[in-house]
């Protein structure tokens, strides 16, 4: 079974968020980049687990420039076999999806795993776009994945409960919490990652959206403190002032 895991880089969850160039670009000054948590903890680890159990290969793909190489090496250290980087500075989900789908079509994978969203764009768009481009089935926010032969069984959070879905390979999923547990790369993994193949390919695709500018949320006013003895006052304020209950 051939697994393709889509790995995106993302600013560390504690990064200071600031913008430059007339607020049109994220200020990456001093920002530490990590593997997008959903891609690493859930999609990648589950693909590696299934490979370990049933055989096959785990390839990662990243659309990005050479600054992404450290996070790709991290994915290799966790246990991916090889990696592709499409050398482009992505500006839009459609563009990323097109580049990944073109690669997947050429190389033929049984399962394409993505994270449920990137923690910077918060798009949740790329995975379903890849599925449409490959004309295959898709499960968003999957929390569980088993593959037997060419049939997969997944679970996903749906309104008010959990659905079980069956589909045939090839298919695409986006992974959410529950699918796997985070793995910390060991020394052997880190050493072997240095020599695993990371192939860089050149490709282009058009974008259909553009960020005009970013903004930080307005500062929150001071917190209205209420005495612990006087909890009923809070309930009154929630009803009469905030009007939420």
């Amino acid at each position: 079974m051939k697994f393709l895991v889509c790995i995106s880089q993302a600013p560390d969850t504690t990064s200071r968020i600031a913008f430059t160039n007339g607020d049109s670009e994220f200020d990456s000054n001093g920002v530490q980049y990590i593997v997008n948590p959903y891609d690493e903890w859930y999609a990648l680890v589950r693909a590696i687990e299934l490979k370990e159990a049933n055989g096959g290969s785990v390839t990662t793909i990243t659309v990005g420039d050479a600054n992404c190489d450290p996070i790709i090496r991290k994915a290799l250290a966790i246990g991916a076999d090889d990696a592709f980087r499409i050398d482009a500075k992505p500006t839009d989900a459609l563009q990323v999806a097109r580049l990944i789908a073109d690669h997947a079509e050429k190389n033929g994978y049984d399962v394409v795993l993505c994270g449920k969203e990137t923690i910077d764009h918060n798009g949740a768009i790329v995975p379903a776009m890849i599925a449409e481009m490959l004309d295959c089935g898709f499960v968003a926010n999957a929390t569980h994945l088993e593959v037997t032969g060419t049939t997969a069984k997944l679970k996903r959070e749906a309104a008010g409960g959990e659905e079980t879905i069956e589909l045939e390979c090839p298919f695409v999923l986006s992974a959410a919490k529950g699918m796997a547990e985070q793995r910390i790369p060991n020394m052997r993994g880190i050493m072997s990652a240095r020599t695993k193949p990371l192939q860089v390919e050149q490709a282009e695709a058009p974008a259909q959206t553009r960020v005009q500018r970013f903004a930080l949320p307005p500062e929150k006013g001071a917190c209205h403190m209420i005495d612990a003895e006087n909890a009923a006052e809070l309930v009154r304020l929630l009803r009469e002032e905030a009007k939420v209950i």
């Binding site: 989900a93 949740a124 749906a158 259909q208």
Partner: peptide, 24 residues
Amino acid sequence: SHDHFGKAIAPRVAVRLGAGMVSG
């Protein structure tokens, strides 16, 4: 809607229509 329904369908529709998509 940007929920489990829209997340699975809207991006596919954008591809089919050649549309630009903004989520959430």
